[in-house]
Write a protein that binds this DNA or RNA. Sequence first.
DNA 1: ACGTTTTGTGAAACACGGCTAACTTTTAGA
DNA 2: TCTAAAAGTTAGCCGTGTTTCACAAAACGT
Lengths: 129, 129
Amino acid sequence: MALRESGEDYLESIYVLSERQGIVRSIDVAEYLGVTKASVSKAMATLESNGYVEMGKRDVHLTECGLEVARQMWERHCFFVGLLEDAGVSAEVASQEGCHMEHCLSEESFEKLRAMLGREDVAGPTTEA
Amino acid sequence: MALRESGEDYLESIYVLSERQGIVRSIDVAEYLGVTKASVSKAMATLESNGYVEMGKRDVHLTECGLEVARQMWERHCFFVGLLEDAGVSAEVASQEGCHMEHCLSEESFEKLRAMLGREDVAGPTTEA
DNA sequence: ACGTTTTGTGAAACACGGCTAACTTTTAGA
DNA sequence: TCTAAAAGTTAGCCGTGTTTCACAAAACGT
């Protein structure tokens, strides 16, 4: 409910980092996203109160609900980044811009677009920078 | 400079409305975008001070600079809406979601994407709802 | 020409999402 | 173990872009 673009970004980064390193701390998220730890702290409080994450003593992890959103965002991220790279956009720019495109579509529209463009599924989060 | 997503939306709507009806007033923009006239008033003040629009007694029009941005946004809008419609998304949803996608890409990336997907140019603003 | 309706503006408030700064708590090294 | 560094939190601020409400100014019908 009421999940904004920035909230989706936080969930996605927790997902990617947890695949990459297991335990995820706020500071990892802050570094990954390039925001301050204060921003992460604030965002985590909101996400927790909405049931997307749970905070341990010194780690954060996704709830089932948060994981679902995060996976979906990551899937879209890979899709758009791959699409842009195939179009000739540099990996760095594609990643930056794909980050925004991934929040624009409903689930239904995204599936239709993917079906039409017929791209193969890409590998998991550990393959990305 | 420093044109945000909302600023681009305002410029685009002025462009579309001017093609459709000639003279554009603040209230037309407000209705088109679904915001209050106070919001339009504020936004127009900013856009005018940045040289994107000029305000007459009771109308708004784009400067050359504003027109360039607006045309570019409209072009992208049509591109993404067409893409989504071809994928099977309803016209209404495609229009809503295309509205967001059009702000995600740099000029360069957009051109590359368009070249790869090889879509034909679409008609002008008067063909849209 | 007058009054009503429509349109535009200004002030104050809010939500959001970021920041810094100061503080607390935890971790970890010597 | 004790102290210093790292991590997390809290409070307060800022910029953006909305809103509502009150008001001003223009347009229009009769």
